[in-house]
Lab assay of single mutants.
Amino acid sequence: TQVHVDGVTYTFSNPEEAKKFADEMAKRKGGTWEIKDGHIHVE
């Protein structure tokens, strides 16, 4: 599962880990995350 944050791609083999990471990054940025085309995007 790929997580895209500010133009950087992080790859996780476990989708649950990817979601936890996205959640943390979104909180830090004061933003949100969503799943697009099977990838997670942090806004």
Rank of each mutant, 00 (worst) to 15 (best):
V3A: 01
G31W: 09
K20Q: 12
V3M: 01
E17M: 10
M25A: 08
G31K: 02
E34G: 05
G30N: 11
K36H: 14
K20G: 08
A18G: 04
A26T: 08
E17V: 09
H4E: 05
F12D: 00
V8A: 11
Q2P: 06
T9H: 07
Q2I: 13
T11A: 08
G38H: 03
I40Q: 02
V5K: 01
T9L: 09
N14C: 14
T1I: 13
G38P: 02
I40W: 04
E34S: 05
Q2M: 13
R28V: 13
I40M: 04
G7L: 04
T1Q: 05
K20A: 13
K20M: 11
E34P: 05
F21T: 01
T9V: 14
E16G: 07
T9S: 09
T32N: 13
R28N: 11
F21S: 00
V8F: 12
V42L: 07
D6P: 01
F21M: 02
E43V: 15
K36Y: 13
R28E: 13
F21C: 12
Y10F: 10
V3P: 00
M25W: 09
K20H: 10
H39G: 07
H41N: 07
K27R: 12
D23S: 11
K19H: 10
D37V: 02
Q2H: 14
F21P: 00
P15A: 11
S13L: 12
F12N: 00
V3T: 01
M25P: 00
D37S: 04
G30L: 05
E24P: 00
F12R: 00
M25S: 05
D23C: 14
G7N: 10
E24N: 08
Y10I: 09
T1K: 04
W33A: 10
E24W: 10
V3R: 00
V42E: 02
K29E: 08
G31P: 04
Q2D: 09
D6T: 03
T1M: 14
V8T: 10
T32S: 14
H39N: 07
K20V: 10
D23R: 07
A22I: 02
H39E: 12
G7W: 05
P15I: 15
F21Y: 05
T1E: 03
A22E: 02
V42S: 02
K19S: 08
N14F: 07
H39V: 15
H4S: 05
E24S: 07
A18Q: 00
E17Y: 06
G38D: 05
H41S: 08
G30S: 04
G30T: 03
Y10C: 14
F21V: 01
N14H: 09
R28P: 03
V3S: 00
D6I: 02
A22M: 03
Y10K: 05
G38N: 06
H39T: 10
K27E: 08
Y10V: 08
G30I: 01
G38W: 02
D23M: 12
F12G: 01
D37T: 02
K27D: 07
E43M: 15
I40V: 03
G7R: 04
D37I: 02
A26S: 06
E16F: 08
I35V: 12
G7T: 04
H41D: 07
T1H: 08
A22S: 03
D37K: 00
I35W: 15
V3N: 00
W33H: 06
T1W: 13
K27C: 14
P15T: 12
K27I: 10
T9D: 06
V42Y: 04
A22W: 02
A18L: 02
E43Y: 15
K27Q: 10
V8N: 10
K27N: 08
R28G: 09
T9Y: 13
I40L: 05
E34H: 13
V3G: 00
D23A: 12
G31F: 06
M25D: 02
E17Q: 09
K36G: 05
E17G: 05
E16S: 08
D37E: 08
K20I: 12
E17F: 06
E24M: 11
N14P: 00
V3Y: 01
A26L: 06
W33F: 07
F12L: 03
E16D: 12
Y10T: 05
D37G: 06
H41L: 12
T1F: 11
K27H: 08
K19C: 15
V8M: 12
A18C: 07
M25V: 12
Q2W: 10
N14L: 08
T9F: 13
S13A: 12
F12C: 12
S13F: 11
R28Q: 14
V5I: 09
G7A: 05
V42I: 12
T11Q: 10
I40P: 02
A18F: 01
A26H: 03
W33S: 07
P15M: 15
T9G: 03
V8P: 02
T32M: 13
T1Y: 11
N14S: 11
F21L: 01
T9Q: 08
H41F: 15
D37F: 05
E34I: 13
D23T: 12
G31H: 03
F21R: 00
N14Y: 07
S13W: 10
R28H: 11
T11K: 08
A18E: 00
K29N: 14
A18S: 02
S13V: 11
E17D: 13
E24Q: 09
P15H: 12
Q2S: 10
H4I: 10
Y10N: 03
V3H: 00
K29P: 05
E17A: 11
A18Y: 01
A26I: 14
F21W: 06
V42T: 03
G7Y: 05
K29G: 11
I35A: 06
G30M: 03
K27S: 08
Y10A: 03
H41V: 14
K36C: 15
I40N: 01
G38F: 03
H41Y: 15
E34R: 08
H41C: 14
V8Q: 12
K29Q: 09
S13K: 09
H39S: 09
K20Y: 08
E24T: 08
G31Y: 11
G7E: 07
F12K: 00
R28S: 13
G7H: 07
E34D: 05
I40E: 02
V8D: 10
N14T: 11
V3C: 03
Q2F: 13
D6G: 08
H39K: 07
